[in-house]
Design a protein around this nucleic acid. Sequence first.
DNA 1: CTGCTGACTGGTA
DNA 2: GTACCAGCCAGCA
Length: 121
Amino acid sequence: MAARRMATPMPVTFRQRVLAAVRRIPAGRVATYGDVAAAAGQPRAARAVGNIMKGCTAAGVPCHRVVAAGGLLGGYGGNESMKRALLRAEGIFMSGKRIRGFSAIRWGGPRRATRRGHGHV
DNA sequence: CTGCTGACTGGTA
DNA sequence: GTACCAGCCAGCA
């Protein structure tokens, strides 16, 4: 360990962190804009994340795995149908705009998925 | 530097 | 259940 790279300030922009977080999302899982924002260090920047995703033309960034809160599909440059197809190709099905088992495939763990303290499904 | 926008979120009606 | 409002944040004109 001990990396002597501190000499470079490395102006890591929020966008870099967000893209990196999305890249960490394994196939078959999904994360919400808020989750990605939190992974980037700003859990309140879900809106900003969405804007960044808009420019996620970079390959290797499964932007289609990023969905809105509540398991909503979210957006996809106006081609949400394509997003749906991509998710389905990963084994993720959905009911209308709601992802099925969203809290079960949500990257980050179903920690606060229920938030009800009972967790009785 | 100031202001507006937008692949969002949560709460209230 | 759906519809509307206000709050927050980074990027861009």
